[in-house]
């Protein structure tokens, strides 16, 4: 039985020499997705600027079959470096910018779940009753308004 990963990448970040095949597979797929996102983003941007720029037009530019270009642009894949070069140059007259991100240097995301998952009171409304019995305070959420007893004024 392979290793149980309670924090999938934290161990690998600290000990890359201990990274499992699963971690490496994750990172490989992640890179494929990131490259696909980059290329498709650029392709869609070029199409907005030039609606006549189709997959067929790209195929002609880079001397590939339209079916091949369609497969590349339909999903991430194990693209060769040459494929990435051809796609970026053919789409935008561009090349890939090379850099490195160190996981250990990256801060964790702040937004870890949708806001509606843990609703908090969004406002307090204070009403001053005519009778000097006490303040009335309300907690207001998306779902309800509840009265909160805050005691008696002197």
């Amino acid at each position: 039985m392979t290793t149980f990963q309670t924090a999938i990448l934290s161990k690998a970040i600290n000990q890359p020499e201990a990274a499992s095949g699963g971690t490496r597979a994750y990172l490989q797929e992640r890179l494929r997705n990131r490259l696909y996102h980059l290329v498709i983003d650029e392709f869609m941007s070029q199409q907005i600027e030039n609606p006549e720029f189709t997959q067929a037009a790209l195929a002609r530019r880079i001397d590939k079959r339209p079916e091949q270009v369609n497969r590349w642009l339909s999903s991430p894949g194990n693209w060769t470096i040459d494929t990435i070069s051809d796609l970026l140059f053919g789409i935008a007259g561009a090349e890939l910018e090379i850099g490195i991100n160190y996981f250990a240097d990256q801060a964790p995301r702040n937004f870890i779940e949708p806001e509606w998952l843990n609703p908090e009171p969004i406002m307090h409304v204070v009403s001053w009753p005519t009778s000097p019995i006490g303040l009335q305070m309300f907690e207001v959420t998306d779902d309800e308004i509840t009265s909160v007893d805050v005691g008696v004024l002197a």
């Binding site: 990963q5 499992s20 699963g22």
Partner: peptide, 12 residues
């Protein structure tokens, strides 16, 4: 999140 029975399953 695992654990997985095989390394193949883990990678998938």
């Amino acid at each position: 999140h695992g654990p997985w029975a095989t390394t193949g399953e883990e990678k998938n």
